[in-house]
Design a binder for these strands. Sequence first.
DNA 1: AAACGACACAACCGCCGCCAG
DNA 2: GCTGGCGGCGGTTGTGTCGTT
Length: 316
Amino acid sequence: MKTCSQSAVERGGGSHRDEIRKGPWKAEEDEVLLNHVRRYGPRDWSSIRSKGLLQRTGKSCRLRWVNKLRPNLKNGCKFTQEEERIVIELQAQFGNKWARIASYLPGRTDNDVKNFWSSRQKRLARILQTSSSAASSAPASSSKSHLRSTKRDSSAPVMNISRNVPSAEILKVSSLREEWIPPNPQCSLPELQNIPQHLPENHNHLVFPSGCQELFPPIPQAPPPPQSGISFIPGGYDFLGRLEDSNFFNAFEPIETVTGIGEAPGNQFSEELPFFEVSAGFRSGSLDTFFDDFPADMFDDNVDSPAISASPRRSS
DNA sequence: AAACGACACAACCGCCGCCAG
DNA sequence: GCTGGCGGCGGTTGTGTCGTT
């Protein structure tokens, strides 16, 4: 099915200078955008269109860079349990401040976090809805359709519908990772241990069916933490400005000199090389010239490699 | 094999704050 | 002080994929 925007794109064919192109990005457009970033840094997005380089809005260009083209992104990599835990804890802490939350997750964008949370909320809502509807309408033996598993929850949520609440087991389904993850004092991000657990005023509460609250313990109220109490450096955005420096691309050490995250003091890799991993599917053609200046193993497809973990990073 | 549902992902839209003129 | 442009952010929607029935 074609979207309206796609049809518009086809009509214009990209030939009309003042026509704004929408829809999926082509490899050529990505290349143009990367060239712009290489020359001018990740800024002046609107100039890309005003110069006639692309028929995309500045917003669209920026979004494409931030979400797809920016190096070091974990594109196509599912959230690890640790990442999920961090998101859950920080969402409880900050509310729906996805950009802020994403800044604590190297390689993740606000869009990633937002999508992850949205999916999670839908699953949770479905589970809770299933729970309440099953309990109110049928005995335990008659709600098979509600228990149908899907590709991602084949092991899943078996409702204890005789109790009108999800069983504790439901919330611990590891494959779904839907378990309630309480504030964890042993969190592997030490800095997070310092964040008082409280709900922002505008925090999006889930409204649990009666009887469920006990399974979703409220987060204790506490004064907002001083920002300075969080000592590790969020990955990503902080480095965008550095690209403005014409020498920025020359400033990197060979990867051999870089120590893996979490295994040595400094953990400099993620701080000094926040951008230079290219996403899958972006490894060929003239784009290689963009990355030729960087160590080859910097572009390792293995996004689960220690170099891009969600492990804590401290500024030394 | 087809239909359906759930999910992940990409992209757009609207609002807001900042800042230069 | 006002205004318009720009960038950042959160919400929402559209689409493709995959597993189940």
